[in-house]
Design a protein around this nucleic acid. Structure first.
Length: 257
DNA sequence: ATGGTTGTTCCACAA
């Protein structure tokens, strides 16, 4: 089983790019972030025609997350139970194909300090509380998506350029590492090694992609049963170099299932 | 330090 996550930065603006990748890779389960559309604007028909069921938690203009699956989708949850009144659509969870998957688009949180940064930390706190609960499920649980966190200085082409950014604040990093303290495993870090340098986002500006001025923002976190199934994982670079791309590129894992 | 690009929407604001 292969599971992928892709921040598409508007599903409508980047649908051709996303579909090219989807047809080429055909992951069993896909987590999508930054749909930037309402539920009724989601391109259900073309995605269902490729054999996917869709669970969509959309929002006008901003945010929005979805799960695509070649298996039936059950027990869909929109918004974290620990943050039921979230004003943004940033979290979706379901049971599909014998695994529980959660897709998230964590708040960016800039500038620092601001109400937006407070919201980011509040959101991460709610995530950690919810994650502690679902970590202990007997089934494989996979939390994936755009965490809007640069965990360490090696995960960014120029740490000094981001020192004041919300994605790299000590509080942001501490909240992110809470997941590992709970026992969650960073799947790509496990596959590639602690010191490996890899990015999932390149700014549209200043030739960031051409110069590989990237940052690591997207992750798969696995509970114990999922860790035991992990075989492989990586980054799909091709969509970022295709026509009219998202600023993120997909990440993927392969489970022995 | 600033500016650079792309998204949604219609005006700046978000990233």
């Amino acid at each position: 089983m292969r599971i992928a996550s892709f921040n598409v930065n508007s599903i409508r603006a980047h649908l051709p790019n996303m579909l090219t990748w989807l047809k080429n890779e055909q992951p069993d389960i896909v987590l999508l972030q930054e749909l930037k559309c309402m539920d009724n604007q989601f391109p259900y028909e073309v995605i269902e025609a490729l054999g996917y069921n869709c669970a969509v938690h959309g929002q006008k203009s901003w945010n929005g997350v979805a799960i695509l699956s070649k298996f039936p989708i059950e027990e869909t949850v929109k918004n974290m139970p620990t943050f039921p009144n979230d004003i943004h659509s940033r979290y979706i969870e379901c049971y599909t194909g014998g695994v529980r998957v959660a897709g998230l688009y964590l708040p960016n949180g800039n500038p620092v300090p601001s109400e937006k940064f407070d919201y980011k930390l509040k959101w991460m706190n709610a995530l950690n509380t919810h994650a502690r609960r679902i970590f202990n499920y007997d089934e494989p649980v996979i939390i994936g998506g755009d965490f809007n966190v640069i965990p360490t200085d090696k995960d960014v082409y120029s740490p000094e350029s981001f020192r004041k950014d919300a994605v790299m604040q000590p509080e942001t990093r501490a909240a992110f590492f809470e997941l590992e303290k709970q026992g969650w495993q960073d799947a790509l870090k496990k596959i590639k090694g602690e010191d490996a340098i890899y990015y999932t986002y390149w700014d549209y500006r200043r030739g960031a992609r051409q110069n590989n001025n990237g940052i690591l923002l997207d992750f798969f976190m696995l509970n114990k049963p999922a860790q035991e199934l992990l075989i492989d994982g990586g980054i799909h670079d091709e969509p970022r170099d295709d026509e009219k791309p998202s600023d993120h590129t997909p990440i993927w894992i392969k489970l022995n299932k």
